[in-house]
């Protein structure tokens, strides 16, 4: 399809518009106002994030996307309470975020399961920290393990599982606490393409069926469009909000939609925002100049 034939990413069908209207009716779960993170480095003060403003409604699926160094992981860590912001405020249900807590679940790219605990005990960990008895925790864990399809692997150890399965455990472990919001920091980044696609569909299924709001960090444009209601596009140095895009692709989403006009239009817009003009390469990259020598017979061509 020619680029010029694409509709504008701002055009929304009747259904999609109605859906966004409905979302706007819901209460705000997460409110971020003038959020900034400044840290001291060898080059002096650096703004990792500056003046971030956005809010997330209940059961909304928001993706955060941006080039590397835009501070998208920092944002997730601040919201999780693992890092502290230096200006502005982040409110969850109207209350300022201070330190980590079970009201915000976090899924990391590196799974970070507890390797010494079985799958079931990994999921039981949160409830037990909340003070639930072992039996109650186990009952909860079983429910959530069944939900992510790992009921049969309850007694396996994390190192016995594949990457996709480990990430399912991590999702179950985060959700068992029934957090208000699920923060996911490039959770599928380390998975192969096939597993990743499966996990994306699975995540949508989970999100559809339980009362959970998702903030999903990614650098994969297709992933962001496929999953999100809205996409928060950040730019780097300093990390600022460039645009918040309402994804015009109707729900329910299927992989078949990857080639629909709305999808392609949104992707074209994201590409425009994230890869504008080619930037000059950093100095050390410029220094790399391969000097190709022919080591095979001149006539022995592979192409």
């Amino acid at each position: 399809m020619n680029r010029d034939d694409l509709p504008s990413y701002l055009d929304q069908s009747e259904d999609v518009r109605a859906r966004f209207d409905r979302i706007r009716q819901r209460e705000t779960i997460l409110e971020v106002r003038k959020l900034g993170k400044r840290y001291r480095s060898a080059q002096g003060e650096v703004d990792a994030l500056r003046d971030l403003d956005f809010s997330v409604r209940r059961r909304e699926f928001v993706c955060v996307i941006g080039p590397s160094g835009c501070g998208k992981s920092t944002l997730a860590r601040i919201l999780a309470g693992l890092d502290r912001h230096t200006s502005g405020e982040a409110l969850l249900d109207g209350k300022a975020i201070e330190g980590p807590g079970p009201d915000r679940g976090m899924v990391f790219q590196g799974y970070s399961l507890f390797p010494w605990l079985t799958v079931k005990k990994n999921v039981m960990f949160g409830p037990q920290m909340k003070g639930l008895s072992k039996d109650e925790a186990e009952r909860d864990a079983r429910i959530w393990l069944d939900l992510v399809g790992l009921g049969k692997f309850a007694d396996a150890y994390p190192h016995q599982l594949s990457g996709g399965m480990r990430q399912r455990v991590a999702i179950a472990r985060a959700l068992v606490n029934q957090p208000r919001i699920l923060l996911m920091d490039e959770p599928f980044g380390a998975l192969d393409a096939q597993t990743r696609a499966k996990m994306q569909s699975h995540l949508i299924d989970i999100w559809k069926n339980i009362d959970i709001t998702v903030l999903f960090i990614t650098h994969d444009l297709d992933e962001a469009i496929y999953l999100a209601d809205r996409i928060l596009v950040l730019k780097a140095h300093p990390g600022e909000v460039q645009e918040i895009i309402e994804v015009p692709v109707p729900r329910p989403r299927t992989p078949a939609q990857f080639n629909t006009p709305e999808f392609l239009a949104t992707k074209a817009r994201l590409e425009e925002l994230i890869h504008p003009a080619p930037e000059p390469l950093p100095e050390d990259e410029q220094a790399v100049k391969p000097h190709m020598i022919r080591f095979t017979n001149v006539a022995d061509n592979v192409e």
Partner: peptide
């Protein structure tokens, strides 16, 4: 691993 401790902290 720092993320193991961090994961535990996000779990309360």
């Amino acid at each position: 691993e720092a993320t193991i401790v961090e994961a535990a902290r996000t779990l309360g």
